[in-house]
């Protein structure tokens, strides 16, 4: 029995060690700043995306973020995933001009967006984006929530983390102070100010509200399949729990005679 216990301890230790591998890297990038811990509806094993918040967040992304940040994996058809009807998604798509072509004369042309189109990027390429933003490349936001330690909490903290720089910090032109950015120097000026967008549902557009909404939108954009993942996971766990109980009972019943001392091979040799 003792052997088993120590072995299980070893197993637990090796798992702990798996997780330790992550902790320091999160520290390295976040510089040990404690992130604001926001309760998002998509957290936890049954979490789902708050559709209304995601739609407001989409509005913030469209009206503010998208002037510098692309979201290259975001197609208009995806809008149905945050509760827009197909008609509304089509209407939103049609508000964008998409470069298509070449036409019969070999020229590219512009046409209104369709559901199958992806959100057009604000800059044609990385170099153009850098040139327009003082040398700093505004990252694509498609998977940004998965690409930063701390994920959604980090993003919210960053968006609400603009402060007056402490006296000992020297900021170069084009740099801003942010409490949550690694090194505290960020090339993005504070993007959100109160009432920058007018929410259709009457929600007050404070900086915190907009930051939270756009974080919900980007968390969804980073992983649109999350709800399906968790719901399949739940069914899987229920199924496997019952199955394991049955396997346990089967195994116990099969082994019972052996535990009592049966010797199935004894006497079999003579027959063979």
């Amino acid at each position: 029995m003792r052997i088993k216990k120590t072995f299980i301890l070893g197993l637990v230790a090796s798992l702990g060690f798996a997780n330790l591998g992550l902790a320091p890297s999160a520290l390295a990038a976040g510089e040990a700043v404690k992130l604001k811990d926001i309760e998002f509806s998509f957290e936890g094993p049954f979490g789902t995306f708050d559709r209304a918040a995601a739609q407001r967040g989409f509005q913030v992304y469209r009206e503010i973020c998208s002037s510098c940040h692309s979201a290259q994996y975001f197609a208009f058809r995806n809008l149905e995933g945050i509760g827009y009807s197909e008609e509304m998604a089509k209407a939103i798509a049609a508000e964008y001009q998409i470069t298509d072509g070449p036409d019969d004369f070999g020229d590219m042309f512009e046409r209104p967006g369709k559901l199958s189109d992806r959100m057009p990027a604000p800059f044609p390429n990385q170099n153009a984006a850098r040139a327009a933003n003082g040398g700093a490349y505004p990252p694509d936001l498609s998977v940004i929530v998965k690409a930063r330690p701390g994920g959604a909490d980090y993003l919210y903290s960053l968006l609400t983390g603009y402060e007056e720089p402490p006296a000992d910090i020297e900021l170069a032109p084009g740099q801003y102070y942010n409490a949550y950015m690694a090194g505290h120097k960020i090339a993005m000026p504070q993007p959100l100010y109160d009432d920058m967008v007018g929410y259709a549902d009457g929600t007050e557009a404070t900086v915190e509200q907009m930051a939270k909404d756009v974080t919900v939108f980007l968390a969804w954009l980073a992983e649109p399949s999350m709800e399906q993942r968790k719901s399949i996971g739940f069914s899987f766990m229920i199924f496997m729990s019952i199955f394991v109980v049955l396997l346990y009972l089967t195994n116990r019943r099969i082994w019972r005679p052996i535990k009592k001392g049966a010797m199935p091979w004894v006497g079999k040799d003579e027959k063979a």
Partner: peptide, 13 residues
Amino acid sequence: FLYIATTAMGAVG
């Protein structure tokens, strides 16, 4: 019954 239930569940899974 136990063996059949276990096997059936394995097959469904």
